[in-house]
Design a protein around this nucleic acid. Structure first.
Length: 668
RNA sequence: GCCAGUUUAGCUCAGUGGUAGAGCAUCCGAUUUGUAAUCGGACGGUCGUCGGUUCAAAUCCGACAACUGGCUCCA
């Protein structure tokens, strides 16, 4: 029976479990040599686990990008402390150098073996059938050959391919243990997933382990703390709601400046909208029925606007504080609980307000605020809007997945004729940004709808879906941008393009988005008067090339490993006088730079120059300008660049001019 | 939300049932400095929170919270 099965305690029949996409035999045989090795290592790991805990039942054990895993169910809860024992057993199996023997079988024979517990086992296990293997057998289409692979005693249902012998596995290491739903479906039981990695030889494994260590140092959460960029104050501000510290605020504001300049040049106008809106807004936009669970719960105001009830509100607050004691922090929770109950009993409930989870409805209302003509289009409305989304607690992840986010948002209202040019221009803007940040590895995911989701996941407009998807596809093809098309992942109001990037430490992120909306403008009754004097509904393009500040800054931290280019660096220049004799000269230099909006600091402490250099480097000040008597006499500075060492002594005016130019050009 | 792990000073971490520690940071003093750490001293913790076991809990047990690794999700 399944350990953590259905909520009511009954085990679900495996046959009822949802199946996912299977790899075809052809795809399997395209496995690289390294993937074969890793997949084989998964079998070896299963062998070892069975030696230690013979009741283990195995499900899937594929190679993955960084190694392999095998999902299993077992009476013993495997922890990292067990790794040493498992690895010791694995080494034995490798040393034995068993052949990976392929055995073709009939479906009938496979069912018999699985029922006896032989598959994914070292021997027959009466009363403990290979239930996952039985389920997998059922998913193999009629006519497809069925095969086992055997290494020593371990026999597994497996299409392969494998390496020749267990001895071919050069070096391996178990890395972590996690849990995973069987077949990735929430409704299925959770299995234990043991992760490992394997390489041809020990050198490659060690290199990989070293890289992992390096990656840890670039983690944006670690660097964010070290560099004073942001602070997660879960206890007071709330989980997933970063507080931007001064250094992080610099990054945010530089990005905003970049966006404002770029958007201004591209003919956008800017707007600003509140963080709250009435329930009607999101009922109209359609977000509440589709995404209510992802929004913060509503705030309830007093009934209507009845001013007579306002004193009552205060009175009831006082009542909740009935003991008249001071409201010290430790009493706040109890107080709120009490106040809430009293309010409810008094019927002090009225309009419901929601924190905005997206800016579009607000922008739609701005569009509707005055009559529009075809001459006004395209209308490109931009805002760095602050939104709030109630992400599930387990999904929060540093700056990458948060509950309060600032979007590089804009909505472009246009006619059908204008659509292609506008959509292409947005894609061009993406590429311009990527160039500034030296971003080379990215892919555009074009998400389309699925007919089965119409009316549920997607607005029920089959013809419009096909039409707009075709429009987007044509723009993509004409611009020659690399893209993949993914069915059944569109937004509820239209197809979209997400830009996937990889941070320097290999994390994959959706950093930007570009979406078509053919549904919501109509729900808000948006229209413009066309050339022929008829009223038409505009198309809307939602776009966010820089995504959110939170995610983009998080990405940049890892991308640059905290070593930002001059224009982004929180501290652009640190001036270090060698002795007290150069204090005035140094101060004047800082004043000149700050007068030109350069983030320049000055340090003269009791420490030796060496110590101050060390601290300036640790603080990642981009330019370190050392001024001693020689420099002062020559009106020069000794330049040192963070991470690059000394650059020599140069005339002061020249250095200042270079700094200003590098910042202006946003050089990388 | 689910499974598992973690939580000791501002930061990095040691401390396996018997008087809470180190380095860095901070503050004070000395040192006046030429390219990645001058020297000395002081300050700093209800060991995540609440409860339990025990003569005695950072340490053992339980609940909750946050974070981490995954899964699911991601307008």
């Amino acid at each position: 029976m399944f350990g953590g099965g259905a909520p009511d305690g009954r085990a679900e029949p495996i046959s009822a479990m949802q199946t996912d996409d299977r790899k075809t035999l052809e795809q399997r045989h395209q496995m690289s040599e390294l993937e074969r090795l890793r997949h084989s290592c998964a079998h070896v790991m299963a062998t070892a686990i069975l030696r230690l805990w013979p009741d283990a039942q195995f499900a899937y054990g594929p190679p993955v990008e960084t190694g392999f895993y095998y999902d299993l169910e077992c009476s013993h809860r495997i922890t990292p402390e067990d790794f040493e024992r498992i690895e010791a057993e694995m080494k034995q199996e490798i040393k034995a150098n068993h052949v990976f023997e392929r055995i073709a079988v009939s479906r009938e024979q496979a069912v018999v073996d699985a029922s006896s517990g032989r598959l994914g086992g070292l021997a027959e296990r009466p009363g403990n059938p290979s239930k996952f293997k039985l389920d997998l057998l059922g998913a193999i289409p009629e006519g497809e050959p069925i095969s086992y692979y055997r290494n020593g005693d371990f026999l597994d249902l497996c299409a392969g391919p494998h390496v020749m012998r267990t001895g071919n596995i050069g070096a391996f290491k178990l890395t972590s243990v996690a849990s995973a739903y069987y077949k990735g479906d929430e409704k299925n039981p959770q299995l234990q997933r043991v992760y490992g990695t394997a390489f041809k030889n020990k050198t490659q494994l060690e290199e990989w382990l070293k890289m992992q260590e390096e990656a840890k140092k670039r983690d944006h959460r670690k660097l964010g703390q070290e560099m004073g960029l942001f602070f997660m104050d879960a206890e007071y501000t709330g989980p997933g709601m970063p507080l931007w510290l001064p250094n992080g605020t610099v990054l945010v504001e530089e990005l905003e400046k970049l966006a404002k300049e770029t958007e201004f040049a591209a003919g956008y106008v800017r707007v600003r909208t509140p963080h709250l809106a009435k329930e009607k807004m999101y009922l109209t936009s359609g977000h509440l029925p589709y995404y209510a669970e992802s929004m913060f719960p509503p705030m309830t105001l007093l009934e209507g606007d009845d001013p007579a009830k306002r004193p009552l509100l205060r009175e009831k607050f006082q009542e909740a504080l009935h003991d008249g004691a001071e409201l010290t922090p430790d009493k706040i929770d109890t107080f709120l609980e009490r106040a809430y109950q009293i309010f409810k009993a008094e019927g002090l409930e009225g309009d419901r307000y929601y924190l905005k989870a997206m800016n579009c409805p607000h922008h739609h209302r701005i569009f509707a605020a005055e009559p529009r003509s075809y001459r006004d289009l395209p209308l490109r409305m931009a805002e760095y809007g602050c939104c709030y989304r109630y992400e599930q607690s387990g999904e929060l992840f540093g700056l990458m997945r948060v509950r309060s986010l600032n979007m590089n948002d804009a909505h472009i209202y246009c006619t059908e004729d204008q659509f292609a040019a506008e959509f292409a221009a947005v894609n061009e803007m993406y590429l311009k940004y990527f160039k500034i940040f030296g971003l080379e590895k990215y892919i555009m995911r074009f998400s389309t709808h699925a007919a089965s989701g119409l009316g549920k996941k997607y607005v029920n407009e089959p013809a419009l879906w096909l039409k707009t998807e075709d429009m987007v596809r044509r723009v993509l093809q004409q611009s020659g941008i690399n893209y993949v098309e993914v069915p059944n992942e569109a937004a509820f109001y239209g197809p979209k393009i997400d830009v996937q990037v990889w941070s320097a430490i290999g994390r994959e992120f959706t950093i930007a988005t570009n979406q078509v909306d053919f549904a919501v403008p109509a729900r808000f009754g948006l229209e413009y008067r066309d050339r022929d004097n008829t009223m038409r509904t505009p198309l809307c393009i939602h776009r966010a090339p820089l995504g959110t500040h939170e995610r983009f800054v998080g990405f940049l931290i890892e991308h640059y490993a905290g070593n930002f280019p001059l224009w982004l660096a929180p501290e652009q220049v640190r001036v270090l006088p060698v002795t007290e004799q150069q204090l005035d000269y140094a101060r004047a230099l800082v004043a000149e730079l700050r007068g030109a909006m350069v983030r320049a600091e000055f340090e003269f402490s009791n420490d030796k120059l060496q110590g101050r250099i060390q601290r300036a480097e640790a603080a990642r000040a981009h330019h370190i300008l050392v001024v001693g008597q020689k420099e002062q006499d020559a009106v020069a500075v000794a330049v040192r660049i963070h991470g690059k060492g000394q650059q020599g002594v140069r005339p002061r005016a020249e250095v200042v001019a270079d700094i200003l130019q590098s910042i202006r050009e946003r050089r990388s």
